[in-house]
């Protein structure tokens, strides 16, 4: 296991979500869009200066704020 948060991996990497931190509301919000523990996601890009991170889940692309991205822990070695 090589656990990092979403801001720490490089764009283009495919990873598996291992933990989602943050409040109930946040977890509900990401769940509705299909982002949950076990999802395979691709990090598409990150804006400079702690800007939003864009990821792809299935065929959905979403952009999430920097500190939201910090709450999503992923395993880079296990896809």
């Amino acid at each position: 296991m090589d656990i990092k948060d979403l801001t720490q991996i490089t764009s283009g990497e495919t990873v598996r979500v291992v933990e989602i931190n943050g409040g109930h509301r946040f977890r509900e919000k990401v769940d509705a869009i299909g982002l949950r523990v076990g999802s395979r996601i691709i990090k598409l890009s990150a804006q400079i200066l702690r800007g939003p991170v864009t990821i792809k889940i299935g065929s959905t692309k979403i952009a999430i704020g920097h500190s939201m991205a910090k709450k999503i822990l992923v395993d880079g070695k296990n896809t």
Partner: peptide
């Protein structure tokens, strides 16, 4: 002020 959370449609 919450952060951005938005779908990027094709």
């Amino acid at each position: 002020s919450p952060e951005i959370f938005v779908e990027i449609p094709p």
